[in-house]
Design a protein around this nucleic acid. Sequence first.
RNA 1: GCCCAGGUGGCGGAAUCGGUAGACGCAGCGGAUUCAAAAUCCGCCGCCGCAAGGUGUGGGGGUUCGAGUCCCCCCCUGGGCACCA
Length: 884
Amino acid sequence: MRQTAAGSVPAPNASRPGGIIAGLFCAVSAMQEKYLPQDIERHAQARWADTAAHRAADVSDKPRYYCLSMFPYPSGKLHMGHVRNYTIGDVLARYHAMRGFNVMQPMGWDAFGLPAENAAIANNVPPAAWTYSNIDHMRGQLKALGLAIDWERELATCKPDYYRWEQWLFTRLFEKGVIYKKMATVNWDPVDQTVLANEQVIDGRGWRSGALVEKREIPMYFFRITQYADELLTGLDTLPGWPERVKTMQANWIGKSVGVRLAFKVAASDELLWVFTTRADTLMGVTFVAVAAEHPLAARAAESNPGLAAFIAECKQGSVAEADMATMEKKGMDTGLKAIHPLTGEAVPVWVGNYVLMSYGDGAVMAVPAHDERDFGFAQKYGLPIKQVIGVEGEAFSADAWAEWYGDKQRGVCVNSGKYDGLAYADAVNAIADDLVALGLGEKKTQFRLRDWGISRQRYWGCPIPIVHCDTCGDVPVPAEQLPVVLPEDVVPDGAGNPLNRRADFVHCACPKCGAPARRETDTMDTFVESSWYYARYACPDANQMLDARANDWLPVDQYIGGIEHAILHLLYARFFHKLMRDEGLVTSDEPFKNLLTQGMVIAETFYREDASGKKTWFNPADVELRDGVHVCTTDTQPVTHGGTEKMSKSKNNGVDPQALIDQYGADTARLFTMFAAPPEQSLEWSDSGVEGANRFLRKLWKASFDHVQAGVVAAYAGGELDDAAKSLRRQLNHTIQKVTDDIERRKQFNTAIAANMELMNALAKFEGSDAVSRAVRQEVLESVVAMLAPIVPHICEALQAELKPGASLVWPTVDEAALVQDEIELMIQVNGKLRGQIRVPASADKAAIEALTLASDTVQKHTEGKPPKKVVVVPGRLVNIVV
RNA sequence: GCCCAGGUGGCGGAAUCGGUAGACGCAGCGGAUUCAAAAUCCGCCGCCGCAAGGUGUGGGGGUUCGAGUCCCCCCCUGGGCACCA
């Protein structure tokens, strides 16, 4: 099969200690004519392993570059999203290594989480065993991709030597009051008797039992992230290296709003009903007050009102997900209670509304139907009064239909508002707030949408919360010397509650304070906690403390790369955790990630068949082909329906297995295709024929180098007379170096960097000279292309470098400014903005000269029909526009 | 529902600061090579039109000498919405 001469020489055995010699061996053997990715990649990867080529030095003279890709959840095998994410990171890591940086690119495993429990239920395997075997498999796959990872820093969050430090920090924060306990609402499956994650609630029912889900209040531990809300918001301004859209999303999520907190007296009682509003200027238009179903006032009113009690019970059905809350039909019911308007003394009804969130503000809102769209709809539905208190010049108000200007605080002034009439938004808010303060019924207040972070999970496969419950001492944090609280790994969950509750050896313990028999907390932590600090632990994975000085040497991360789906939660929690660690003296920086690249999803076509009951069966695109314009399944040749292009997923069975791709074409082809098909931030559509194209280019690159090497390698061009063809090729080479450097370094857009190298290779293929100077130019082009592509397709480039320049390491090429100079340039000619022709002018020509040359040209004469120009626009280096 | 993106040939995409729309690749078509095929190489390739030319970046309007790019409105697709990670 491998018919070339090299087949007869002993294969380099790179796994023996003489790996470096084996690497050099390649350079002195005859070059293979055929591109054999499997051999090349095996050889290169063995050499990297033997020479510890990607080890990051904790101490070095070079500048540091910490390149981090979001670590994977060990789901079983690598998917294309991983390949994309890690190749992007690898390109940046290898590029910086070539530019002389001391690069750290670590890898680890976000190993706790729900899928392991689901797998356990399905296959009767302990989550721990399942997870560890997945990790072993996926580590092998990552190595086969040829990533420049320092594997000595590998960590897995499910290992006690990792999570013990998380538990340690938890106890510190608990004692400091940064972590506290309160009641919170969860999805409760009354049949399985278990708490459900939002994704386990489908159309209001439990995914396994099918039972109607209920909301239930349980005690939970919370991180006081709201205490850091302002810093998390202003900190965004210190992150110029983050995408604007991510910062906008985070800012909106934190949701700082300045407004007024004010109180209505509850009629016939001393009680005050507090509400928060950003529209105090509309206070005179309040026609009712709405409270959340969980509000104490609602509960009290329901005691003597069975109808209301039934309504509140109805509100407690369904999931707690905010998307569900916001899309459901707005419903409400009068409590019969009245609230006294703080300024007018008027009595307005108090309603319960299913759209009022208990978790925001005080769980109650003042309703101004005339100037809030949601209140407007609600008032119309229930026949509540609508009172206009804001007017805009020239606009007529109608209570029958909502108009955009009703809610616009920029345009209107107060009307029907007594002494506040004529005041614009800011003045009205101030005047009304002052009056409320004077009455003791209000205050100016800054409110955040952000809520405290509840981290208790009623699940087994997570980091145990290090708390012991003692009848006399209460909630006692586990002392440092008793950590870690180790999670038993031989447990198989069955889907009905947390199995830790049934593990007597885990639950029963002595109170750390008084020694009396006590119960260990069985809730585990949200897995977002582990992923909030792993980036710091990579710097010192062996430290016998949470972090040591090396963390500060490496942090902040220079480049973080991960999916856009993490724009808010993970990235906000990690930023918050970094500040917690800073305040504990563990790190000195304020932000964990200096530059952020959010990569798009990998998507593919979907195909399905629907049976009589409407159940869909999904077919993998690999098993579908187009025959006579109809998509058919290759195994039974029956037609399937095209279901659109969607994110690769198990449920739609449209995943492409990267392993098959690597086995067939090699890692370099997989890497090249994923980098070429789309820029990193966009979604990437999978295409089998695109993969063929990527492989074809690598074969061409190999062939061009082979042909050149066969005729004998020479020194790259360093000077000497060039003919026009050679000059033009060198100009293109240097333009390419300039562009590719900018594409990788600043734009982080690799598809255009690859395209530029393809163009250069196309130009090289047309370049014919075989004299000494031409051969030197060809050598220069090939060496440069190999260097520029090395971060993207490292295996083939290392092999080609060994042939083109034996013994020399890959160095990023620099631009020869002199090669860029041109004598003549081509300008486009437009007449009245329409393209009419081109003109060649000396590169040195000034605007006046260009204008004169253009006006004299046949093109202009023809299209202006001799009319004198009204205006001439000259854009240097681009075009001339004649306006007549 | 709310927040954030995106929409360009048959397809993936390019056009970086308002200045040649469609680079590069895929698919397709024509040719060379081959007993034949694969592979490879050369050429063509937005749409309408014989051509001159016209037209064209989701739809509608606007700013400008000039708009894929800026502004306003609308439509569609995707991401996130706090227990998927």
